[in-house]
Nucleic acid binder design. Sequence first.
DNA 1: GAGTGGTCTAGACCACGCA
DNA 2: GCGTGGTCTAGACCACTCT
Lengths: 241, 241
Amino acid sequence: MDSPHTTQSLPQYRQLYEILRRHIIEGIYETGDMLPSEHELCVTFHMARPTVRHALANLVRDGFIIKRKGKGSIVYKHPKGVGILSVAGTTTALEGVDLKTRIITRPQVQPWPHSFIFPLSEIELESGSIFMERLRLVDDRPLFFDITYIPNINLPRFCSRSFEDKSLFDTLRRFYNIEIIGGEQRLKAIPAEGRFAQYLEVQDQTPILHLERKIQTNRYRFQFYSKLYCNTTDHDLFGIF
Amino acid sequence: MDSPHTTQSLPQYRQLYEILRRHIIEGIYETGDMLPSEHELCVTFHMARPTVRHALANLVRDGFIIKRKGKGSIVYKHPKGVGILSVAGTTTALEGVDLKTRIITRPQVQPWPHSFIFPLSEIELESGSIFMERLRLVDDRPLFFDITYIPNINLPRFCSRSFEDKSLFDTLRRFYNIEIIGGEQRLKAIPAEGRFAQYLEVQDQTPILHLERKIQTNRYRFQFYSKLYCNTTDHDLFGIF
DNA sequence: GAGTGGTCTAGACCACGCA
DNA sequence: GCGTGGTCTAGACCACTCT
């Protein structure tokens, strides 16, 4: 097994979040079911109410439950959809879906593009970027093409890791202790052209979704960037707000 | 003035949120500035720390600040962008932007469309929907076309209210005590066609963004729906996650 | 070392849904 | 009227950034 420090003292609210999340995904709860009340969860897991509420708040944020005053926490499983607009990261968001990753360009260090989408700091510019291109497939049909730029700062052996069918976010968390804490994204509908149309297996000029993202991490002054080209003809993109 | 109960005992954490949010938007803080520390805010506003933290957490959620352990809350003003993907509602998200609304179809009661995007409950079906079409313009250029379906349940005089350059969310909050607490949305890139292309003033077949949303409110079992057609050629859509 | 945010406790009172 | 979640208090200890 490769679990260096899987549960390395995760905060209690995160532990409870993971447990309930798993229960919902695995079908122990169905849409419409009530979660145990906050009080019950306090007793069961030996936590104070704010701690329990913190966990539940995150489940709300990620769309797993909705809460009703005087009623309780209601499980809400969303119909199939591709929730790549959330913090959780693509691989997690698509849990339960047959997701495959094909590496188009293996991670390699190179200078930043000349005019980059987002402004870069001195240190980012100096260090260069780790560049990587991946095609993600759902049910063996290409869903989106993902170009990632990561500042090459203190990420030993990063380029020699395998990302075939692996989660980038997981790799960052497990080997480098980097957690994703948020980000911003810009969306555009654009016509598919050239190699993007080929990768996504759509006709030239088919409307596709283009996302440019800046992803914040818990490491001080460390963020990274990605560009997505997404085929929304077969699947809708799905988001919570 | 039309402020029936503007501050009708808003919770403290919301009051603080609104104050800080306004200060950020109005330029009292610039990007990179530090907000007062949590402790300072506690003292200044006579609140306990969890209350202050609740307000700050919402500012983080809405992208106004990022927090750094051992450092503080850093103000983060996003460059121009159109943040219609957030809870806040279009009008609020576009604060500071020259937003105009042109009513295409005045609110009217009618039955629900035959096959509606989202499953509807008995009571929603029985009551029929309030239907309304609006074109939203930024700097006098059409940005998106918005079709709204609201269950016609206990919304007296709704159809006779004016929505020209008014916020729907504000109307719901002020006159019906309905708050938006979240929602889900589906995104697609589609080609502009027919009247949509005309309204948005784009060429036929230009890629546009299509959103289908279900919007949750604090009123029990009350949600509403909207469809958006958005021109992303001139502006990117902007989102936080 | 001083100050910051991150986590956590053990209570309290209120508004709401439901029976 | 009971149980639920929504709000709030007044503390506590820890990990982190900065000087």
